[in-house]
């Protein structure tokens, strides 16, 4: 049963809370007793989507596991901004691994807990797109293949932001990064195959795979909760806009995540054992320009002579997602 949005009661489940909904229908984030797993004082930039996504996901996991949770964290923004020695923003048992071995460290923790008979303690591994789709990919695939009892969460901000915005295998075509400058006949990142780790995870036939964004909290919490209700290898891919790396206004973080979904560029769905079980439909479809124009990493597409052909290719990617996942309501726009 996928997440069922409540459509009435003024704002329904579109907002974080809603005084008109029953308590169990409200989000973990609306609760005054939420864990605040990632606490104030962290050094993430203004409007950081990753900091937001991490608190959303880990708070939900803390509730789902009755606060019996250990997290392993790959190197990356999330690790750097939350734990400059000797401070920590984490209010949970948390361990920093190397850039590439978080999945393996989490596997080890899960194995140790099993040996000690601590079945109630759950394990999460988390990292950015660099640590997940590039550097940690081998360990991750191994964790999937062995079906280790770990929930791996990837916070995808589409480049190596911590080290100065270098391209990763999650960087979208045409995006400007420090290593894909907007010069030459095809400025920005190439139109390659990309690396869609959620789809690759599905190909491992693991019990649960889901994608989510920071723009739809109720859906995100539902997916974390669902994943925590299962054992074995599970993977959640969360789309987290980065104001610094994308050249976006800090107040547009959630808006960008919403637009990524509403354009069709980022498909939101869940899958069990390799099969898609539900998709989040687009509510108000918009053209990709609405999303691209808010980000300076795409500014070269909208110069004196707009790169109409490139924009059309990006639109075609969105259209393909919409077809492939069935993102429009029946009879929708």
């Amino acid at each position: 049963m996928p997440f069922q949005p409540v459509k009435f009661y003024q704002t329904g489940t579109f907002t974080v809370g809603n005084r008109l909904l029953a308590l169990e229908q409200r989000s973990v984030q609306a609760n005054m007793q939420r864990t605040n797993s990632l606490n104030s004082g962290h050094r993430a930039c203004q409007g950081c989507g990753e900091a937001l996504g991490a608190r959303y996901a880990i708070d939900a996991a803390m509730r789902a596991s009755n606060k019996q949770l250990i997290a392993a964290n790959a190197t990356g923004c999330l690790e750097v901004f939350s734990t400059p020695y000797p401070e920590t923003s984490w209010q949970i048992p948390w361990i920093h691994s190397l850039f590439g071995n978080t999945a393996a460290v989490a596997t080890g923790i899960a194995a140790a807990l099993r040996v000690k008979g601590r079945r109630e303690v759950r394990v999460i591994a988390q990292g950015g797109d660099g640590g997940t789709t590039d550097i940690g990919f081998g360990c991750l695939s191994g964790m999937f293949e062995r079906n280790d009892d770990v929930l791996y969460i990837c916070y995808d901000n589409e480049a190596y932001m911590n080290t100065g915005v270098q391209r990763s295998s999650a960087t979208p075509p045409a995006a400007r990064t420090a290593t894909t400058m907007p010069v030459g006949p095809e400025p920005g990142n190439v139109f390659g195959q990309g690396k869609n780790v959620a789809q690759i995870a599905m190909a491992h036939n693991i019990p649960y795979v889901a994608t989510a964004t920071v723009a739809d909290l109720h859906d995100l919490e539902y997916k974390v909760n669902r994943a925590m209700g299962m054992h074995g290898a599970r993977y959640i891919h969360i789309f987290v806009p980065c104001p610094l790396g994308w050249g976006a206004a800090s107040n547009d973080t959630i808006r960008l995540a919403r637009l990524a979904r509403e354009t069709g560029l980022f498909a939101v769905y869940e899958a069990e054992h390799g099969e898609v079980t539900s998709v989040s439909k687009i509510r108000k479809r918009v053209p990709v320009e609405d999303y691209l124009k808010l980000q300076r990493r795409f500014a070269h597409l909208f110069g004196k002579t707009p790169a109409l052909e490139t924009i059309a290719r990006i639109q075609a990617m969105a259209d393909k997602n919409i077809r492939k996942f069935g993102l429009l309501e029946q009879g929708g726009q």
Partner: peptide, 28 residues
């Protein structure tokens, strides 16, 4: 419930939820 409560807080908890810095305090 169709009222959009224009310009006046109706306690939807959005500010409390969306702050990446936990810098919003919910008073109840």
């Amino acid at each position: 419930r169709r009222c959009m409560s224009c310009g006046n807080c109706f306690e939807c908890d959005n500010c409390y939820g969306v702050c990446p810095d936990n810098a919003v305090i919910k008073l109840g």
